[in-house]
Amino acid sequence: MYKNILILALLVGLGILLSTAITDREENTSLPELPAYYADNTAKEVGAANMVTAVIVTYRGFDTLGEVTILFVSAALIAMFLKTGNRRKNRNPRPSSVILSTAQKLLFPLIILFGAYVFANGHLTPGGGFQGGAIIATAFLLWLMANPEGEMRHGILSSLEAFSGTFYVIIGVVGVILGVGFLNNSILPLGELGRLFSAGAIPVIYSLIGLKVGAELSNILHHLNEVQNEE
């Protein structure tokens, strides 16, 4: 009881501290130097219409590399953790309803296509590799829900994941070898703004990321599902 009051008091204190961000901050009327630079120069230097993508993949590409790594580590950890021996011991899951399984068969390819569209067009419209990958994983989630006893071929997914990751790193290294900097997207021609094949290596990178994320998240879902089915 007293502990809760203490927690409440501390959090109120934290809240007051944080509220200075509202009270002390002056409303911005124009962009600070950094984003202004991005706004003005993305088209020329990076060639991507979606500025956020340009920042993520090129300007702060190193962060994205880290982000991809985090997902990889999480997936690896979950795979390692939940590797149980006897998987098929007491599997008696309730079969899914007819509506679900029928709808799944229809929707599965559509969702995947949509996901692929999102990550392929990441440099032109809102979206990108992560978003697309998440959408693809949703498709697999739907599949899992509809086929509770199904066994996913996670070998293929793992290979996909690994190769995508490796290629991503290779692209970065190519940038170093060519002397333009790690993860510089101008190793491929920048092309014309607004077209699908523009912005240099960005579509390639984002597609790789999309596939990787999709594969990883699906793997995670698969492992979590496996454990559940044991009970």
Binding site: L34, Y37, Y38, E45, T58, Y59, R60, G61, F62, D63, G175, V180, G181, F182, L183, N184, N185, S186
Partner: peptide, 13 residues
């Protein structure tokens, strides 16, 4: 100093 993405800080890491 290693510049990534071909840009100098603060525009890149």
């Amino acid at each position: 100093e290693v510049f990534t993405a071909g840009f100098k800080p603060p525009f890149a890491i």
